[in-house]
């Protein structure tokens, strides 16, 4: 983290800038990314309720498949990936 509180993480390989205290979902929206999940039938989904209720913003973070992007704060070096609900885990 630099002096401005700036952090870097990766979303599907792309370098994303976030800030300390920011949620993954907010950092992605600020970078113009809204689709972060593929549903059971392969439809794109993303941030919806913003308060941890709907589970639409679920992403894979450092290999864990069930993290809600709206509730997880950005940490330096996180590997964030799209979750495909149709994929066998």
């Amino acid at each position: 983290m630099n002096a401005n509180g700036q952090l870097n993480f990766r979303f599907d390989g792309q370098e994303i800038i976030g800030y300390a205290g920011e949620s993954i979902a907010a950092a992605l929206i600020a970078s113009g990314i809204s689709a972060t999940r593929l549903s059971a039938t392969g439809m794109p989904r993303g941030y919806f309720c913003g308060m941890g209720v709907c589970w639409e913003c679920v992403v894979r973070i450092n290999g864990i498949n069930t993290v809600r992007a709206c509730r997880q704060v950005v940490e330096d070096g996180m590997i964030v990936e799209t979750v495909n609900a149709a994929e066998k885990l």
């Binding site: 907010a26 929206i29 809204s34 689709a35 972060t36 549903s39 439809m43 794109p44 989904r45 993303g46 941030y47 919806f48 309720c49 913003g50 308060m51 639409e56 709206c70």
Partner: peptide, 17 residues
Amino acid sequence: TLPGVITAGGSQNLIKG
């Protein structure tokens, strides 16, 4: 269900929080 359709609460949280 399209990404970009968000709730009023979700919008408030983005702006306020």
